[in-house]
Simulated scan of single mutants.
Amino acid sequence: MAHTPVNHPARPIYRAIGGLVGLYLVVFGVLGVIASAGNDLFAQDDTKVLGQGTNLGFSLLSILLGIVVLAGTVIGRNLDVAINQFMAYGLMVLGLAELAFLQTDANIGNFSILTVIVVLTLSLVLLMAGMYGKVGTDEEKEAFEKARLVL
């Protein structure tokens, strides 16, 4: 049995928070595409959007990830939970990888330290939304409550 709550009372709020993260990613990506129009895909210049370093490649990736998160939020039915958790882990890997290559030529996302902080924060918020947004039957909720009370 998973150790995540089923039918958490605040699950609509967590679902909305996941949707807001997806919306932020889309808005950031669109603004990034506008700001980096005409540059190379993985340009390493001083292009900044909302105070964060970006380039055309990372902006397009942000749009794609945001659309996937928004689609999961709209569909629901625990698909949003799986998408949010998967995207959270993916954003953590991306943020930590870019942190490792921040001051090198391998910084293909044109990240700044602020971009790393925002990406890692968004990943933690998505992970939280994924862990508390699970919907189940009344039997699953009852089984979770009984297991939780035993521990």
Rank of each mutant, 00 (worst) to 15 (best):
Y24C: 00
V26S: 01
V27G: 06
F28K: 04
F28C: 00
G29R: 05
G29D: 00
L31K: 06
L31C: 10
L31S: 04
I34W: 09
S36L: 00
S36N: 05
A37F: 13
A37D: 10
A37I: 00
G38V: 02
G38S: 09
N39A: 09
D40V: 00
D40T: 08
D40M: 02
D45H: 08
T47R: 07
T47H: 05
T47W: 06
K48D: 12
Q52R: 15
G53Q: 09
L56H: 01
F58D: 15
L60S: 13
L60E: 10
L61D: 08
L61P: 03
S62R: 03
L65E: 05
L65Y: 13
G66L: 07
I67T: 09
V69C: 10
V69L: 12
L70K: 04
A71H: 06
G72T: 09
G72N: 07
T73D: 07
G76W: 07
G76D: 03
R77F: 12
R77A: 13
R77D: 12
R77E: 13
L79A: 09
D80G: 12
D80P: 02
V81E: 03
A82Y: 14
A82K: 14
A82E: 11
A82S: 13
I83F: 07
I83E: 05
Q85T: 13
F86D: 05
M87W: 03
A88S: 15
A88F: 05
A88N: 07
A88C: 02
A88W: 03
Y89V: 14
G90A: 09
L91M: 13
G95I: 04
E98S: 10
L99C: 01
A100W: 14
F101I: 04
L102S: 04
L102A: 01
T104N: 06
D105Q: 14
A106N: 10
A106G: 10
N107T: 08
I108R: 10
I108K: 08
I108A: 11
N110T: 04
S112M: 08
I113A: 15
L114W: 14
V116Q: 02
I117W: 09
V119K: 01
L120K: 06
L120R: 02
T121R: 02
T121M: 14
L122C: 12
L122H: 05
L126F: 08
L126A: 03
M128N: 11
A129R: 06
G130D: 02
G130Y: 07
M131S: 14
Y132C: 04
Y132P: 00
G133F: 09
K134G: 01
K134R: 15
K134H: 14
K134F: 11
G136W: 03
G136C: 04
D138E: 15
